[in-house]
Design a protein around this nucleic acid. Sequence first.
DNA 1: TTACTATATTAGCAATATCTAATATAGTAA
DNA 2: TTACTATATTAGATATTGCTAATATAGTAA
Lengths: 104, 104
Amino acid sequence: MSHMGNQLTSNVFKALGHPTRIQIIKLLRKGEQCVCDILPNLKSEQSNTSQHLTVLKNQGIVESRKDGSKVIYSIKNKEVYKMIDLVEAIILRQTEETKTSLTI
Amino acid sequence: MSHMGNQLTSNVFKALGHPTRIQIIKLLRKGEQCVCDILPNLKSEQSNTSQHLTVLKNQGIVESRKDGSKVIYSIKNKEVYKMIDLVEAIILRQTEETKTSLTI
DNA sequence: TTACTATATTAGCAATATCTAATATAGTAA
DNA sequence: TTACTATATTAGATATTGCTAATATAGTAA
């Protein structure tokens, strides 16, 4: 498993490197949702949201299917939730550390 | 744990979103290393490498200490290796899928 | 001191990402 | 057909990142 291009690896991380895209992923934790349900939860324009969804789709993080005139998105690789949990653990530890260094 | 700014979360992912930085993290899997040992393994210039190390340090992924005139870097949050493993699993699955769709 | 090694910082430019606004496409319904 | 809804795509402006080259800083050694 060790030899995979770091370019491919970093592309996936880069796709996760935007707050709106993280928010989309968290919205999909409840299950699949059409764009029309995702949109009102975000502050982004429709076209911008569509672009963010494309970025996530290109990296295999989400997938989509058509249902009539709607497009339904869902998480394709659930690993992404473990990754977010790990990052949040790092941030939490960093935050604690900062608090401590201020109190000492 | 649920309420953490997606901005903070995405900042960590963004720091992982560069092939050179992934390579640095993998180099540090063996243990702490001075910049002088990291440099020859990378294609980047010294100043560029220094900048990448700063990005990783700012997000709490690596830490550093001085040893004489050298600076020794090490992984601060080992979660990062789990994250890389998860991403590589995603990529592997994507690759298999592509192979399959070509063969069918 | 001077000279040297190791690393970081800065400035300016090139490359990439992001956003908005406009337009295109596809499905549905009248 | 027309009109409408849902989503995607494109173009162009702005913002951010990444790179190189030069310079700065700090430690060591003569």
